[in-house]
Design a protein around this nucleic acid. Sequence first.
DNA 1: TTTGTATATCCGGTTTAACGAATATTGTCA
DNA 2: TGACAATATTCGTTAAACCGGATATACAAA
Lengths: 141, 141
Amino acid sequence: MKEAARFFKILADESRLNMLWLLFNRRELCVCDIMAVLEITQSKASRHLATMRNLGIVTDRREGQWSYYSLCPVEGQLAKDHLKLLKTTLSQRPEADQLLEKLHIWLKEKEKGASCTPDGKRCSAPLKTGGMRPSLAGGTR
Amino acid sequence: MKEAARFFKILADESRLNMLWLLFNRRELCVCDIMAVLEITQSKASRHLATMRNLGIVTDRREGQWSYYSLCPVEGQLAKDHLKLLKTTLSQRPEADQLLEKLHIWLKEKEKGASCTPDGKRCSAPLKTGGMRPSLAGGTR
DNA sequence: TTTGTATATCCGGTTTAACGAATATTGTCA
DNA sequence: TGACAATATTCGTTAAACCGGATATACAAA
């Protein structure tokens, strides 16, 4: 497939659009954040992010056991225009505000010690200092 | 699927992008023009056009046995921005110029009496008595 | 009416995308 | 080292997209 079509195909998926919307608003996020906020499985999150990375839309940065993803800096006016328009488009979707709110709540939770638990599979308190219960799911162990 | 993703999905196909590029440059075209210029089968042309019509990207107008397709007039600034950026994007594809050239050659051929023959299936000279020139927007003279 | 053209639609078949579950990999910490 | 957490990748299945060929419909002209 040629480049233009390939680019649009990336945008033709709800989950990827949601991820991009989050990344437009947060500079960088780890996979675990995205799973939690969008309530999707880990493999789904990771796969979609890999897809976008392969197309040069996002980059990742490894830090310890975490992978942080962020939007790629773009070169070229046309690409800049695309991103700008995309951001506007995403901001006008009905779910836009709610997603950002969920993101903020999640990040606050996380600060307090919560960790990934999108589908009730995992749960931990990575921060030693009184890490506490994420409210999201019961302790699967 | 939500609206944004659905819109991008439409653009995630070479043939549809090519059709849109032609329509950006010609006000209206009939299916037969598109088959000929893009060298695709009739069912493929018709199907893709129907897809775009169902999504409100193009409209059709029946005149005799011909169906003329054109871009829908758009309402809303965001939609206008999308179309404008899309046109720019399409114009910068490597095949853009060649397609327009083929379009012009085809339309000239057609004026002289040629008819659909994308895959070598059909061919005729429907224009006999100086009648009916399907009114293209002015048409190359 | 008959013939033929332009287009739409239907019918399999093939390819591609997306998914969850399971597993593999990598890094951390005890 | 071993256990575990975060992420990546593989596997098998399901769903969707796309396609060409065949057929159906609509219209035009003889």
